[in-house]
Design a protein around this nucleic acid. Structure first.
Lengths: 110, 110
DNA sequence: GATTAATACCTTGTAATGCAAGATAATATT
DNA sequence: AATATTATCTTGCATTACAAGGTATTAATC
C-alpha cells in the first residue's frame, strides 16, 4: 500500500490535464508535476506513458529544437484525448466521493 | 485508464476504514462498499486482499457460525492496522490535493 | 580540443494488485 | 433429492509505476 500504487490509473489523467493547458514535452512534465505537489516522477514512468497515450491517439507529438540537448518532443491533446480527460475527471469525482464516504462512514443516499 | 486501475492501492485503505468501524466478514465487505457508492467488488479481489493484510498483521480474524452457509471469518484491525489506516488517510489527502491542483491548474504554494 | 555537466529521449525487466473464472462447502428451501 | 443462497478460497492474467541502464546533443569548464 504505497503512494506509488495509488497513482495507478491517475497519473495518465493528470498528464492529459497538464497537456491540455499548454503544449509540453516529456522532460518538462516531471517538473510540472512537482509544481503541483507530487514527488518527481521517474522518466521510466513518463515516457512509456506518453508513448502509450500516443498509440491510443489521445495525444500527438511534434519535434522542436532545444536550446540545449536533443530535440524536444512536444505533446498536444487530440479530440479523443480531450474526451478522455473529461471521462477521467468524472471517474475521479466518483472515486473521490466514494473514498471520502468510506473514510467518514457516510452511506450514499440515492 | 479504467476505474479499476484507479482503485489500486486505495481499496486496501477503504477496507481498513470499514473494518475499524465494525468487525466484518469478507462477503459482507462487498455489500458495504456498494453502500458507499462503489460498484461491487469481485470476491477474487477482496479475499486475497484480506489474506494479504492478515499476513502483514494489519488485521486479525475469528471464525463465527453463519445462519446459512459456511462459517464467517470476521476481521478486526490490529494496532498496526490502525496506524496503517492513519498513514493511508494522510496519503489520500496528499493525493487528493495534488490531483485537484493539477485539474484546476493551481500551482502549490509553500 | 578534451572533459564534464545538463538537457532530453528511450528500453528492459520487475513488482504490485484488481479481477475473471472456477472450485468448495454448509445451510435452507422446494 | 435437487436447487438456491450464503460464504470462502485459488489460479492465472492484464495493467502500470518504476528502477536501472542506455543514447544523443549542446553548453560550460579545464
Amino acid at each position: 500500500m504505497t503512494t506509488t500504487q495509488m497513482m495507478k490509473g491517475i497519473l495518465d489523467g493528470c498528464l492529459l490535464a497538464i497537456i491540455k493547458d499548454k503544449e509540453v514535452y516529456g522532460y518538462e512534465l516531471a517538473e510540472k508535476l512537482e509544481g503541483y505537489g507530487f514527488n518527481s516522477f521517474s522518466e521510466g514512468t513518463i515516457y512509456p506513458l506518453l508513448m502509450r497515450m500516443q498509440k491510443e491517439e489521445l495525444v500527438t507529438s511534434t519535434l522542436k529544437k532545444s536550446t540545449a540537448g536533443p530535440k524536444r518532443k512536444y505533446y498536444s491533446l487530440t479530440r479523443k484525448g480531450e474526451q478522455e480527460l473529461i471521462n477521467f475527471m468524472e471517474r475521479w469525482e466518483y472515486l473521490k466521493g466514494n473514498v471520502n464516504r468510506v473514510l467518514n462512514h457516510e452511506a450514499k443516499n440515492d
